[in-house]
């Protein structure tokens, strides 16, 4: 053990300075064997967080630069709406989930909602209303419903019953789309198929996996 004469304390670790006063004790005669109670701590940055922070700023700066270039060359900002919304989607669906370690079920819900919103935006922006609301969004929701059911039914796949929540959200969205399309006298079969499939899946789960569905809802919505 070393000794700091200034603080009058014995120092167990084999270090060169007294941790209390900073005095040099490297020449100090050792009274007995010295130890190291801690590893030589090298402070490390969270590489994943750093990478995501960099990616975030690359996306933001890239979007701004492309906006400026478009304004200077084309004197309008039309094409950059695509860049801007694409960047927004990338941040919501890639950067945030990786940075905050979202669960797969959360990612599927957020990705579905943002993609549906993006399709709606494209429809309105390109003045070609119909294709998204009538076909793409309902069929996309149908696909996500079947995807969620598959995940739930695969055994020992981390017991992903959080996907039940996704299923409920997709069925509500399909129902809203169906009602909208029905009332606006649009094409209703894709949204009806999506809604009926999600409801059938949910009833199927209630019948055959009642205990687990109940548990998934209980833990997600307990107050």
């Amino acid at each position: 053990m070393k000794h700091c004469d200034k603080c009058d304390v014995s120092i167990i670790d084999d270090i060169s300075n007294c941790p209390l006063c900073g005095r040099d004790i490297s020449d100090n005669q050792q009274v007995s064997q010295t130890f190291l109670c801690y590893p030589n701590n090298k402070t490390r940055n969270d590489k994943r967080n750093m990478a995501m922070n960099w990616l975030f700023w690359i996306v933001v700066v890239g979007t701004i630069i492309s906006g400026i270039v478009e304004l200077l060359i084309f004197k309008h900002y039309r094409y950059n709406f695509y860049v801007l919304t694409g960047a927004f989607l990338a941040i919501i669906n890639i950067i945030l989930p990786i940075k905050y370690r979202w669960s797969f079920s959360a990612i599927s819900i957020v990705a579905s909602l943002t993609l549906c919103a993006y399709i709606l935006f494209l429809e309105l922006f390109t003045h070609s209303f119909g294709w998204g609301v009538y076909y793409v969004i309902p069929l996309f929701l149908l696909f996500m419903t079947l995807y969620s059911l598959t995940i739930i039914l695969i055994r020992n796949y981390y017991k992903r019953f959080e996907f039940v929540i996704s299923l409920i959200i997709f069925s509500v969205l399909s129902l809203v789309l169906f009602l909208y399309n029905y009332l606006s006298k649009g094409i209703i079969w894709p949204s009806l198929v999506a809604f009926l499939t999600s409801v059938t899946c949910f009833i199927f789960l209630l019948i055959f996996r009642f205990k687990k569905v109940k548990q998934a809802l209980e833990k997600s919505f307990f107050i």
């Binding site: 053990m1 700091c4 603080c7 009058d8 304390v9 014995s10 120092i11 167990i12 670790d13 270090i15 060169s16 300075n17 007294c18 941790p19 209390l20 006063c21 130890f35 109670c37 801690y38 030589n40 701590n41």
Partner: peptide, 25 residues
Amino acid sequence: HLIERDFCRILKEFGLDIEVNTNIV
């Protein structure tokens, strides 16, 4: 680490022997 140092000084005034270990290098 002035508070830790002063705390040590106070304990030393009561004649207590102190051994120190740390992760500060």
